[in-house]
Amino acid sequence: MDVVYQEGQNIRAFLEANQNIFEEQLLQEAGDVREKIEEIQRIGNIDLIANAHKLVRYIIDQHEEDLIAFSEQEGEAWAKYSLTLTFKLEWVQAIRRTIWRFVERYEELLPEQRETKDFFALEKRINDFVDKFLNSFFLSYSRYKDRLLESQQQLVENLSVPFIPVSASMCVLPLIGKLDLERMNIIEEKVLMQISDQGIKILLIDLSGIAHIEGDVAERLIRVIDGIHIMGSQAVITGMRPEAARKMIELGINFEGKVETKGSLQQALSDYFVSTAEEL
């Protein structure tokens, strides 16, 4: 390795004086990652070469606080743009190997060889900092992905329980697709929260998009209706299909006294607005 060395240089100055050679060596060590450098820059605006030099400075100077902040920033960026973790690991390990090639060459050029214990102390400091970077990077990556998953889950829950305001005191809850216990748990929680937060007095639950209702789901629906009643609101079931109605009859479930039923959502809304107009 043809490098520049001036007597009295510390390892930091030696690396800076040979920055271009360091880059060449790093790219040789980087394997598959060097073919992805431009793609990673394009996708996530991440300059792997510049970031490698920054990481090396934090490692050599033992700037732990800066290194942790940088690793968290990197972890979030790689998670945000769904960049391959294998490439990141390969790249950081290539940086580690390149640092050690230069440390080895630096040690050879020193006029006096340092004691073995000093060399092993240097080895421990460098490797510990590389490991700290990787650990913090993966934690940051994981936290970002967890937040993203939670946000997506919240979006799915909101879409599966869509409240449509009709007036200041009335909302429509159209249910479409398959009802299972997991979804019913979400519906129950959202219904009670919305009644409390929005002051809903009448909740129209439209079942015209539900073809089949299993027994445990029907029982949970009754529990939701009971909860609505306890909260001081009125539930109105609309659009129940014949198949669902037959299942209710088979199960011996009777809505009488608990909830008002209407043949369709249109009928329920028409009756509501007619009665409101008459009151005025």
Rank of each mutant, 00 (worst) to 15 (best):
E65Q: 14
Q28L: 08
Q25D: 13
K36G: 05
N18G: 04
E29T: 00
K54S: 07
E64S: 09
E24I: 13
E64R: 09
E35D: 15
L55N: 00
H63E: 15
E64A: 09
E38Y: 05
I37V: 12
Q19D: 05
V56W: 00
D32K: 13
E39S: 12
L55R: 00
D66A: 15
D66F: 12
L26K: 02
I60R: 03
F22W: 04
I21A: 06
I21C: 04
R34M: 09
I43W: 02
I40Q: 09
I40M: 11
L26P: 03
I43D: 06
L48W: 07
L27Q: 05
I46T: 10
D47L: 09
A52I: 07
E65V: 15
D66H: 14
E72S: 01
E23L: 15
E39G: 07
D47M: 08
Q41A: 11
I21E: 05
N20I: 12
K54D: 06
Y58L: 10
N45C: 07
N20F: 13
L67T: 06
D32S: 15
R57P: 01
E65H: 14
N51K: 10
F70D: 11
E64V: 13
L48I: 08
H53W: 15
F22C: 02
G44D: 14
S71D: 09
H63Y: 13
F22M: 01
F70Q: 08
E72L: 00
Q25L: 11
Q73M: 08
I40A: 07
I60F: 09
F22I: 00
H53A: 13
K54M: 08
A52V: 06
E72M: 01
Y58P: 01
L27A: 06
H63G: 11
I68G: 02
Q41K: 08
N51W: 09
K36H: 13
Q28C: 02
E64N: 11
Y58F: 15
Q19K: 11
A17W: 08
Q62P: 04
I46Q: 05
E35H: 12
I40R: 06
R34P: 01
K36C: 09
G31Y: 10
G44A: 15
N45I: 04
I68L: 14
V56T: 01
I59K: 02
I40K: 03
Y58I: 02
Y58K: 02
A50D: 14
A17T: 08
I59G: 03
D61A: 05
R34N: 11
N18A: 07
E39H: 11
N18I: 07
I49R: 06
D61M: 05
R42P: 00
A30W: 01
L67S: 10
K36F: 08
N45S: 12
R34A: 10
R34V: 11
L55Q: 01
H63L: 13
Q28Y: 02
N20A: 13
R57Q: 14
A52H: 04
I68P: 04
I49M: 09
Q73I: 03
I37N: 01
L26C: 05
I37R: 03
A17E: 12
E39W: 07
I37S: 03
Q73T: 06
V33Q: 04
E23F: 14
E39Y: 10
D66Y: 13
E72D: 01
I68F: 08
I21P: 01
Q41W: 10
E38Q: 09
A17S: 14
N51P: 08
S71N: 05
E23C: 10
I40P: 06
E24C: 10
F70W: 09
H63K: 14
A52F: 07
R57T: 13
A30V: 01
E35T: 14
E29D: 03
